[in-house]
Write a protein that binds this DNA or RNA. Structure first.
Lengths: 225, 225
DNA sequence: ACTGATTGGTCGGGCACCCGACATTCCGGT
DNA sequence: ACCGGAATGTCGGGTGCCCGACCAATCAGT
């Protein structure tokens, strides 16, 4: 098994999993809630596991869920999603295996929508079906554009772009340098060097498992996207 | 404008444009034909141009259409599609600009489906809508897997993989080495070197704008996918 | 057949990056 | 407070690839 390939697949899955795109209207939400089953997941339990046939998708009502992939013996966290996020839908529509595992990291309440009940519902509500699926298309296409943007660029440019994408509302990126290297398919040393340069330029500050974006402008200029 | 980036986008668009995925059932085809307009396109005329807002998609009934992208002054052909292929639908559903231009290279008959008429039709026939859109999802996802497979691999491996993908039914790949280099985001020289090695291993034969696959097994072993 | 343009083939210099190794700093748990 | 593991920082050696340059081979048009 190629670990690098898995890492990229992990990044892909992260974007796939970032399905907080579905702005449900009230009447649609009611119909969905009616078709699904509310399930309480205790901390540590799984919604689904990588490789399982995707026979259901999940909408998170309350709590927090971690998406991760197994790369050989290790597991690499791919995303953390919270209330309102939808996960597993794209794999479910295609009737293919999940690309990642999903595990509750707090006590979590989810709406479980089984394929066999959701599909008839969508067929009965074609507007909802169109919106859901077209949003899925947009999601996938945006991921592709992002991947293409990062191909054949220097590690420095890739790191700058990643930091711009991944920073939270405080400008922090809570990832180890090794994790960033895995996401980019680069070596830890190269990432370290790139971060050192960005730091010397005053674009970021670095700490233990934490990078703080100081100047988005400088980062954007470096990433040249 | 970054030419390398555009070339990768072109290859992406090729997969996006390769929308020969829609196996229509007779009754669906009738409904579609009813909603669309049959248009004759003479050799050299355009179905649409890159950048235009996608307000319609096209199903090719007879003839051949070339998809290409403009990269600054040059144009690079991205795909050729024939009878039964669907083109422009993904951009249309998203109400975004076309990713490539489409031009008839023979006298061609197409079914033009305008968004304003197709969407109501799909809403009235949700089964058709689901099949169309889920097929689109599969298409995009396959493209992503392909892109990810090629990232962070040596030029030799990439070339081997590309030849496996692009060979026609006779095992021929009718591309110049420069064109292959553009598709992979590599230099012409590196591609030439890779081809020389594959030739010395007996996996392929090379000619003027032509590469013939002799041993798929050797190629597959080299590409290690 | 001749000519210009395109394509194929090859060489050498330079560079970004990977890899291994090692020291240092930081953190969490008993 | 200590200690082991994890993360950060830094240094050479090696290498795959880009780039510029150049020439040979092939093709297309008059």
């Amino acid at each position: 098994m190629d670990a690098t390939l898995d890492q990229h697949a992990a990044w892909l899955a992260k974007s796939l999993g970032r399905t907080d795109y579905l702005p449900l209207r009230p009447e649609d939400a009611v119909a969905l809630a009616d078709a699904g089953a509310v399930v309480d997941k205790y901390k540590g339990t799984h919604l689904f596991r990588e490789g399982d046939l995707a026979d259901a998708c999940f909408i998170i009502e309350e709590g927090e869920v971690e998406l991760y992939r197994n790369n050989g013996a290790e597991k690499s966290v791919v995303a953390r999603i919270g209330s309102g996020s939808v996960v597993g839908d794209i794999a479910m529509f295609q009737e293919r295996p999940y690309l990642s595992s999903a595990r509750a990291i707090r006590n979590t309440t989810v709406l479980r929508l089984e394929r066999d009940r959701l599909v008839p519902l969508l067929l009965a509500r074609p507007v909802l079906a169109m919106r859901w699926l077209v949003n899925g298309l947009s999601q996938l296409e945006a991921t592709q554009q992002r991947i293409i943007r990062l191909m054949n660029r220097t590690v420095l440019e890739q790191v700058a772009g990643l930091l711009l994408d991944e920073q939270d509302s405080y400008g922090d990126v809570l990832l180890s340098q090794a994790a960033i290297a895995e996401l980019l398919g680069a070596s830890r040393q190269s990432v370290n060097e790139a971060l050192a340069q960005l730091r010397s330029e005053g674009a970021i500050e670095t700490g233990y498992r934490r990078i703080t974006v100081v100047s988005e402008d400088r980062l954007a200029r470096t990433s040249s996207t």
